Lab assay of single mutants.
Amino acid sequence: TDVTFHVNGRNLHLKGADEELLRRIEELIRRGADIEELEKAVKEWEK
Rank of each mutant, 00 (worst) to 15 (best):
L38W: 01
K43S: 14
A33P: 01
D18Y: 02
R31E: 13
A33I: 05
I35V: 05
K40A: 14
I25G: 00
K15F: 11
E36W: 08
R23T: 12
L12C: 02
R24M: 13
F5G: 02
G32K: 05
E26R: 14
R31D: 10
E27F: 12
V3W: 05
I29K: 01
I29Q: 02
R23H: 10
A41N: 07
H13A: 05
E26M: 13
R31A: 14
N11F: 15
F5H: 03
V7H: 05
R24F: 13
G32N: 06
E20G: 14
V42Q: 03
D18T: 15
W45Y: 14
E46H: 11
D18R: 04
D2Y: 06
D2S: 06
N11S: 14
E46D: 12
T4A: 04
E20Q: 13
E26V: 14
L12R: 00
T1D: 08
H6W: 08
I25K: 00
T4W: 08
A33F: 12
D34P: 05
E37L: 09
T1L: 13
A41P: 00
K47W: 10
N8Y: 03
L28Q: 05
H6E: 14
K47L: 14
G9R: 00
N11P: 15
L12M: 04
L12P: 00
G9Q: 01
E39D: 05
T4D: 06
K43G: 11
H6Y: 09
K43L: 12
A17K: 03
K40D: 14
V3T: 05
R10C: 15
F5N: 02
N8A: 06
E37H: 09
E44H: 11
E44S: 10
V7C: 08
V42A: 06
F5V: 11
A17E: 02
T4R: 03
A33M: 10
G16H: 08
H13Q: 07
I35L: 08
E39V: 13
A17H: 05
R10H: 15
E39R: 06
N8D: 09
H13M: 08
I35H: 04
E19G: 11
L38F: 04
R30Q: 12
T1N: 10
R24N: 09
E37W: 06
G16Q: 09
D2V: 08
G32H: 04
L14N: 00
G9W: 03
E46F: 09
H6R: 08
V3F: 12
V42L: 07
A41Q: 09
K15C: 03
E39C: 05
H13P: 01
D2C: 06
I35S: 02
E26F: 09
E39N: 06
K15E: 05
K15S: 07
D2E: 09
H6D: 11
I25T: 02
E39G: 05
G9L: 03
L12W: 14
V7Q: 03
